[in-house]
Design a protein around this nucleic acid. Structure first.
Lengths: 170, 170
DNA sequence: CAGTATCCTCGCAGATACTG
DNA sequence: CAGTATCTGCGAGGATACTG
């Protein structure tokens, strides 16, 4: 009956997605990375309703992803800036952008190009690497129960590994 | 009145998020990476309603992220497997998982640990690098209009760069 | 300009039952 | 077991007006 809450999942992805896995939040974060910080910035750029924007900014602030600071004493304008926790979402944002560049804007070319501010180099495509720096293909990523695993998680992992053939669509 | 469509944005992030930026899709993709492929797999693991699952699987299939193949001739069971386009979402999934591991499951430790199947090494934290392989801090990521930029995009980029101070929350 | 307050509508998603 | 069909509701999110 009640909408299922992803907080019930003992899974980093589910819990993370529950925080930022909605369309507006990710767009707000993108703009925050681009350097925008004020209510009206987000509002004008995204065409988002003030009500919704307020809710999103509060949620992100409560989650510790943004921090709200007054621009100046005695005035009710604020900056919503990325915290360290929020800045740590950069790889996620970039990987989404790169996926879209590749698979959606393939012909036209990407509308926005990202660069290293200091060197001017373009960004490299994000890759999944292991601790030795080796790039991993999806099929070579495997998993096991970690320290925070519940009994259910452990059981799920076992059954998964039993049925895991390691191949993907041919 | 109508819900604003993210397809209107000339932005890789918006368009991508419009495809996969909902909670169920990302969880389905996670399970697909884990090797699950059948309707009942997703249904049992996620506790998702068949109606919703059908809709999500169709959407992902239409988007070319999953591909639907019959298990055997004459039987109506199917595998939903990642296509190359879908497999390319691995960095996004991993970055979300790693963020959750770090910022949500900090004390308990992550419920699931990812490894290189071949070497057994743990995965490295995903980093944003430039083409020279240099790791980039968020503040050093800048942007400019790309080949697919519309006039509006160009204008937005200009005004952004003018106001961009390069600092984040102190 | 930065929000808050109301109202309303549409669509996602849950429940349940059904078919091949 | 793999879905489809219907019905229903709740709640996100849009529109608009208002306050400090």
């Amino acid at each position: 009956m009640t909408r299922t809450s992803l907080q019930d999942f003992n899974c980093s992805l589910a819990r993370t997605v529950d925080l930022i896995g909605d369309k507006w939040s990710l767009l707000i974060l993108r703009d925050a990375f681009y350097g925008y910080s004020q209510f009206s910035d987000f509002r004008n750029r995204l065409g988002i309703t003030p009500t919704v924007l307020t809710a999103r900014l509060q949620a992100l602030t409560n989650a510790g992803i943004l921090q709200r600071d007054q621009v100046r004493e005695g005035i009710d304008r604020h900056h919503y800036r990325l915290t360290a926790k929020g800045r740590d979402l950069l790889p996620t944002i970039i990987s989404l952008v790169q996926w879209g560049d590749k698979w959606i804007f393939e012909e036209e070319g990407p509308p926005i190009v990202l660069r290293n501010r200091q060197t001017g180099n373009a960004l490299a495509r994000m890759e999944v690497c292991d601790s030795a720096g080796k790039v991993l293909a999806p099929r070579n990523v495997t998993f096991e129960a970690g320290p925070g695993a519940t009994a259910e998680t452990r059981a799920a992992v076992r059954s998964a590994r039993a049925s895991d053939t390691g191949d993907t669509a041919k």
